[in-house]
């Protein structure tokens, strides 16, 4: 597989790694009425990209760079703890580790690689995504873009099932925020070196709250 083909594969929403079961907090945000039309959805997606998206992108990019080191495991362990410290919601930590575990299982089924076999049992998802990008010859910028792309396309696609919105309009919103994803990916790249403690930690307190409320719901369409 070429690097470009790998990037398309990893960024594809049809990747059987569990992402499609999650709305990134959109389901509960629709329930509270904070997201109710195309405009508020776009604002939600933009906010998500600038907070969670930036953080995930920085961790994916750095994991991608680390995956090319002779022994990336010590750095990946530090990154795992740093990402925990940036995820105050236990429901979100659990989701991230569950998605990491699923992606990890998928990757080990795709090809044999010593690093993948040595990863801890349930690493955070962007660490696995980043490491996979590195192993398939992709650059940290690719890993950052893939993480950002995923942080907004998941909720955008979920929107079609959660509110009465034309899918053309959700994708028009994605197209409008695409240039900001490029800028955020460049920013994420600035943190491939230096102290991991200084990496982006953009907070989204309302997403933290809705993640915990959503986890208590018995009737829900999406897992998060």
């Amino acid at each position: 597989m070429t690097a470009r083909a790998a990037l398309l594969l990893f960024a594809d929403g049809r990747l059987p790694a569990g992402g499609y079961a999650h709305s990134g907090g959109l389901e509960e945000s629709v329930r509270t009425g904070r997201v109710r039309d195309a405009q508020s959805l776009e604002s939600f997606l933009e906010g998500r990209a600038r907070t969670v998206g930036l953080v995930l992108a920085a961790f994916a990019a750095r994991s991608c760079r680390a995956a090319r080191d002779p022994d990336p495991l010590p750095e990946l362990e530090v990154l795992d703890a740093e990402l925990d410290a940036r995820t105050p919601s236990p429901a979100q930590r659990e989701t991230s580790r569950q998605l990491g575990r699923q992606l990890h299982r998928l990757l080990t089924g795709m090809a044999h690689h010593p690093l993948l076999e040595r990863l801890p049992r349930a690493p955070h998802q962007p660490l696995v995504l980043g490491a996979a990008c590195g192993l398939y010859g992709l650059r940290p910028l690719d890993a950052a873009l893939a993480a950002l792309h995923e942080s907004v396309t998941g909720p955008a696609v979920a929107a079609v099932r959660l509110m009465s919105i034309d899918p053309f309009r959700t994708h028009a919103a994605l197209a409008r925020i695409a240039p900001s994803l490029d800028r955020l990916a460049e920013r994420a790249l600035e943190h491939c070196d230096g102290s991991p403690h200084d990496m982006p930690a953009a907070a989204a307190p309302l997403l933290d709250v809705v993640a915990e409320v959503h986890a208590t719901r018995s009737e829900r369409l999406f897992a998060s």
Partner: peptide, 22 residues
């Protein structure tokens, strides 16, 4: 070892969106 890392922006940018403070 990192215990809590948060950069919260309020009043502008992401701060006004439904994910931060609305």
């Amino acid at each position: 070892r990192a215990l809590l890392c948060q950069d919260l922006e309020l009043g502008t940018g992401a701060g006004r969106t439904p994910v931060v403070a609305h």
